[in-house]
């Protein structure tokens, strides 16, 4: 049974599968980095949808209007993981740029460690 609330989880699974496939089969370094970022976003989406409660308000107790609140912990986790993800992607892109300068190509098939 697919309700509106389970839609994000379906999207998460599709995004993770897509990015894994891209990492395995794509030869272009930029596309691989994009796949890593998409996977990171998928996991962030997963965390955020875990914490969502239908009709919930922001989890701030002061002057709260009452009623259901969304969970605070997944939001904190997602914030941390976004920052980490950006660091990873930036580092990978800088490697890709340096590799492009050395070899003049983005194709991973044309560069291979020997041995």
């Amino acid at each position: 049974m697919v309700t509106m609330l389970s839609l994000p989880f379906v999207a998460v699974v599709i995004l993770v599968c897509m990015s894994l496939a891209a990492m395995l089969f794509k030869r272009n370094m930029i596309k691989i980095v994009m796949a890593v970022h998409v996977m990171g976003s998928a996991v962030n989406l997963f965390l955020i949808s875990l914490g969502y409660r239908e009709g919930g308000v922001a989890p701030i107790f002061t002057n709260s209007p009452g009623g259901v609140m969304v969970l605070p912990a997944p939001q904190a986790l997602t914030l941390t993981s976004i920052v980490i993800n950006i660091a990873v992607v930036a580092l990978m892109l800088s490697f890709a740029v340096s590799l492009y300068r050395r070899y003049g190509t983005m194709d991973t098939r044309k560069m291979r460690l020997k041995g």
Binding site: M23, M39, M92, R112
Partner: peptide, 21 residues
């Protein structure tokens, strides 16, 4: 900062991004 060391680093970074996620 050689070509091959950037290759190894790129490969390592893909693997560690996958494992962390």
């Amino acid at each position: 900062r050689k070509g091959s060391s950037f290759e190894a680093a790129f490969k390592y970074m893909i693997i560690s991004a996958i494992n962390a996620l």
